[in-house]
């Protein structure tokens, strides 16, 4: 029994499975983004380039390790590891193979929200510790961005919890399963707000302000190379899995069995669809400037989020 639990944690649906999903979704994202732009995307590594993210990861691992002389060494070494570990940890809370997650407790939704905040904090520290001008600007922008999207995000994420009377992600999934409905059908506004906030959380166009290539090189990760950059990229991919898992669990029914299709397969299909929406959306826009983004978030997104909370409190969509 202990051996099975260890298997669950390490292999399926635990760390290994999730990391494979992360690489898979990076491929989905790159491929779809390329197709929208009339390109092929990854092509040669594995069938249709499906192994390209893994190849990139391995290549970065073997690259020269450059540490800027001025950097804060402790932070500089620690942040990439933490950045990769945090979404991996948070993913244990997500119900992947069954409506019940590996780790689940009342209030784990709060922990997810907290981990999103922590991710941004880590990004800030990453940029700050490398002591480069571009990194510093990138990290300040990242923190500013968090101030604008975190509040609507928090408000809206609470709505499914109110509806399900449970602060646990697994609880919300089970509530959807019991009522045979999807959160998206009850709270479409909430889903829209979450998608916009998640574009910002993942730093995708039009909110890729902290790492705007043409403005500040690579933003907060300018100074990271080799192993550390590989960890950052894996952390980013895991974050994409986490975000899409959260959207699927709260709004799209989560990991529920559908006739003969097992719950895990449904989960993969649904999250892949969410990733596809993200990568399609990021092909459609130009990048906002940081002041425009913050103003827009506070002016438009926050009232909408509040309206969603009010609607739920009035009993609509609950």
């Amino acid at each position: 029994m202990v051996a099975y639990e260890i298997f669950q944690l390490v292999v399926f649906p635990g760390a290994l499975f999730v990391i494979c999903l992360a690489f898979l979704y990076e491929w989905v994202d790159r491929k779809l983004f390329a197709r929208v732009q009339g390109r092929y995307g990854p092509l040669y590594t594995g069938p249709a380039g499906i192994l390209q993210p893994v190849a990139d990861f391995l290549k970065l691992l073997s690259k020269e390790d450059i540490v800027p002389r001025a950097c804060d060494a402790n932070l500089f070494f620690a942040v990439p590891v933490m950045y990769a570990a945090l979404p991996l940890t948070a993913l244990f809370i997500m119900p992947i193979a069954a409506p019940e997650a590996l780790v689940s407790f009342e209030g784990d939704l709060i922990f997810i929200l907290f981990s999103f905040g922590l991710m941004t904090l880590l990004i800030f520290l990453a940029g700050w510790s490398s002591m480069s001008r571009f990194s510093a600007i990138g990290s300040v922008r990242s923190a500013l961005q968090m101030l604008s999207y975190e509040i609507p995000l928090g408000l809206v994420l609470v709505c499914p919890a109110i509806a399900a009377r449970s602060l646990s992600v697994s609880g919300i999934v089970q509530w959807q399963a019991a009522n045979a409905t999807w959160g998206a059908a009850l709270q479409p506004i909430g889903l829209a707000v979450v998608m916009v906030c998640m574009l910002a959380e993942l730093e995708l166009v039009p909110f890729d302000i902290p790492e705007a290539e043409t403005e500040i090189v690579a933003g907060w990760r300018t100074e990271f190379t080799g192993r550390r950059l590989a960890l950052f990229r894996m952390g980013r991919d895991l974050e994409i899995v986490l975000v899409s898992a959260l959207v699927v669990s709260l709004y799209l029914g989560g990991a529920q069995q559908l006739w003969l299709v097992p719950a895990a397969a449904m989960f993969v299909i649904k999250t892949a669809a969410v990733v596809a929406v993200f990568s399609f959306a990021r092909a459609l826009f130009a990048r906002f400037r940081i002041d425009q983004m913050i103003a827009g978030m506070w002016k438009y997104l926050l009232p909408i989020a509040v309206a969603q909370v009010v609607l739920v409190q009035m009993g609509l969509g609950a």
Binding site: V36, Q37, G38, R39, V205, P206, D208, A212, T214, A283, L284, F285, A286, R287
Partner: peptide, 12 residues
């Protein structure tokens, strides 16, 4: 378009 982060228009 690329400078504005609008890579799709850039590619087109």
């Amino acid at each position: 378009a690329h400078e504005a982060g609008f890579d799709t228009l850039f590619m087109y």
